[in-house]
Design a protein around this nucleic acid. Structure first.
Length: 294
DNA sequence: GCTCAGGGTCTCG
DNA sequence: CGAGACCCTGAG
């Protein structure tokens, strides 16, 4: 186990922020979160003002510190919000613990192709089935709440995110149980491409590309349009200047920024603010509404 | 039952 | 360019 203090971070808010689909609160005592990313797995819980992780200090710094974007200055991002922008100020206040995770490129590519014209609970189901059916089964460590109120470690089983080759091998027939709808052919196409040397080279090039080039490269792929390309840039390549406009953000811009969102003001990190707004719209509870479940 | 929307993209005119 | 089609499913 490893204990660390982290500011500007809330596990539940991140789990509900719509950027990751294998990060969830466990239905167990102790408010424990299970977090699967690419081939890794960890569980985490908050203990007073620190976080507890079910991994070693070494693994935390090799894998999870980057994943949680710990080098970034979220206090700085927040402080740049225009003082007269009441909507954004409220959104940041509400989602104070949201961060932009640095996720695996392949996993983001596939999960955000699945996300198009789809809803978050359905995306979660599809991604979950994708991993249990075609991802390698691995042994990991989780957390348990002990009788004395402290946490212990526990062996557990999880599934890695499936490789391009294993999705390709599944074929459209194998993908059918995921209820991907018409997106199945996009997923298969991407997996076929990424199984070839040409596709692997393309992925390596994508990792090195700047935002503009990466966006252009992504648009060339079957099933990837402007919006998904921006999500891959933001969540899979950590180009935090990318500003994906989906149906929710579009509605926010229409009702709160009729003159247009001041992208210039937040150049280079507008994606961070996009995420606060997205989280706020989906999760802030107006009186009489229930909290959306995961 | 029915309609509608959900972190859009493709195809066709 | 713009309009429609598109798989599927839960909410109203």
């Amino acid at each position: 186990m490893y204990r660390i203090q982290i500011n500007h971070m809330d596990l539940d808010q991140i789990a509900r922020s719509g950027q990751c689909f294998r990060f969830e609160r466990k239905n167990q005592p102790g408010d424990i979160f299970s977090i699967a990313a690419a081939e890794y797995y960890v569980e985490a819980a908050k203990e007073e003002d620190t976080f507890l992780f079910s991994c070693t200090e070494e693994e935390f710094h090799q894998v999870w510190a980057g994943y949680f974007d710990l080098e970034a200055d979220y206090g700085g991002y927040k402080s740049h919000v225009a003082s007269d922008d009441t909507y954004l100020k409220e959104a940041v206040k509400w989602g104070w613990g949201v961060r932009i995770l640095q996720q695996d490129l392949w996993e983001i590519l596939i999960t955000f192709i699945i996300s198009q014209n789809n809803n978050i609970s359905r995306i979660r189901n599809s991604v979950s089935k994708l991993c249990t059916l075609f991802g390698e089964e691995k042994k990991g460590k989780g957390l348990v709440l002990l009788d004395d109120g402290s946490y212990g470690e526990e062996e557990c089983i999880y599934h890695a995110f499936p490789s391009p080759e294993s999705i390709k091998a599944a074929g459209l027939t194998g993908l059918a149980p995921l209820s991907l709808g018409y997106r199945d052919k996009y997923i298969l196409s991407a997996s076929e491409f990424a199984s070839e040397p040409e596709g692997k080279a393309w992925l390596m090039e994508l990792l090195e590309a700047d935002y503009k080039k990466a966006h252009e490269m992504l648009l060339s792929q079957y099933g990837i349009g402007k919006k998904v390309a921006d999500c891959v840039c933001l969540f899979g390549l950590h180009h935090v200047g990318a500003f994906p406009i989906d149906t929710h953000v579009k509605q926010i811009l229409e009702s709160h920024y009729p003159q247009g969102f001041p992208l210039e003001r937040y150049q280079g990190y507008a994606g961070i603010l996009q995420q606060y707004m997205f989280y706020y719209k989906l999760n802030h509870v107006k009186t009489g509404e229930s909290v959306p479940s995961l």
